[in-house]
Design a protein around this nucleic acid. Structure first.
Lengths: 231, 231
DNA sequence: GCGACAATTATGTATAGACATTATTGCGAA
DNA sequence: TTCGCAATAATGTCTATACATAATTGTCGC
């Protein structure tokens, strides 16, 4: 038995649901009936249904039975890899240049009232500016960053390797570069750019806020939704 | 016992990991030790650890034990709600105007070699153009769209309510509006726009391809990552 | 010393049974 | 009719046990 029985039960119902054989809102067989169909114990059925529940495909209601959920909003998986790795994966030379680094008391936003390290820099791919970023890192949450060598490694890469986070919000929108930004990116003012603003936390504790402005022609985000969840 | 024992075990280890008490790469107690700590059976411990495994917090290796995973790439959940619903949620009046509808044989791309319905239109929020879209819908996969009333409802909304899909790819990038696009959106040529290109499938069968161009000031995408997965 | 093989130890999966929980259903009384 | 309560049928959780599986560890032979 290469594939576990519980897993094959899960797959069977996943297939029936995704194919439309089991329509949204329709009732699945009872656990007793599924036991009989697959010739296994109720615990095994229950575990398979629990997995489908956490995957969001079905809903279990006591006394009433188990139902296929009706489709809601699309939730897609957005991969946000490390920028240095992503540039390297395209076969380009990656470089980061830091042009601002100072400690300050943050007045507003996500890190308001905390001492933070304020970092600014430019990401280059093959010597061409790809993006500029402006970042605040909480010194309370990440004291070690005060001693980090951020000239060699971008702050994002350093944080990714040194600081685990548990929660993040990202806003993605298009905007025109203002004169200073255009200058830094080698564009004309008003040129289209992709802007990504991200705030991260570990538990309730804010870690960092970053605003990255990408040259439109040099960057795109890719999101995927598929049966496996991620792929 | 309001909270199930297995769940409290799961929470206990989640807390210890997120707080850093259990560092990435470190070994958890064996299932036997956890049994003793919580005074329960091994199945209950195993179920709690299974949940943490699917949540991606720990890794279980036979013979070796259970370990806290090291942080990897960021995978965030991108909410892609229906545009009409999203505009309505902001308290604005939503309208869609269809200005192209014809059947054609698709030459290239995702739907190459299929007969498809080619649709073009504009999304308005409070009477102002918000986005233009250009869409191909496979007539083989979705024959019913030939009879749909797409003047009242946007093609995206119609598809969302009538056609389940199982797989989708999305590209997100910034671009400048070309003269025709700028005209349709009431912008100057070259003005920054957010472009979303999406291809969807049901199983192996392509359903639709769409390119949506948003006025930069009117739209942003929001992605989230958190312990709950979605929130 | 060093490689191959066996023993050990840990997780992976499954069964069978028990009791808890809870929403529905139906019946009886006001 | 309608309100409320009890019976019921379904899922939720847990125990105790068994065997499978796989990687590390130790040992034996060379």
């Amino acid at each position: 038995m290469t594939v576990p029985l519980g897993e094959s039960i899960r797959q069977s119902f996943e297939r029936r649901i995704l194919s439309g054989e089991l329509a949204p809102g329709s009732r699945l067989p009872t656990e007793q009936e599924i036991m009989a169909e697959f010739g296994c114990s109720r615990m095994t059925v229950s575990k398979a249904l629990s997995a489908l529940t956490t995957a969001g495909l079905i809903e279990r209601r006591k006394r009433a039975g188990t139902f296929v959920v009706r489709p809601r909003v699309h939730a897609m998986v957005l991969e946000v890899p490390d920028l240095a790795a992503q540039v390297a994966a395209r076969g380009q030379a990656y470089r980061f240049r830091l042009h601002r680094r100072n400690e300050e008391m943050v007045q507003d936003g996500h890190l308001a009232g905390q001492r933070a390290l304020h970092l600014g820099g430019t990401h280059f791919a093959d010597g061409e500016p790809l993006a500029i970023e402006d970042r605040l890192v909480s010194l309370a949450a990440v004291p070690a960053i005060a001693d980090a060598d951020l000239a060699a490694e971008s702050p994002g890469t350093w944080l990714l390797h040194h600081v685990p986070w548990t929660e993040a919000d990202t806003r993605i929108f298009a905007t025109g570069a203002n004169p200073a930004e255009a200058e830094a990116l080698g564009l004309n003012p008003g040129a289209p750019c992709l802007c990504i603003e991200r705030r991260t936390w570990r538990g309730d504790e804010p870690i960092t806020t970053v605003r990255q402005l990408f040259v439109a022609s040099g960057y795109e985000l890719v999101a995927h939704f598929g049966p496996g969840g991620a792929s």
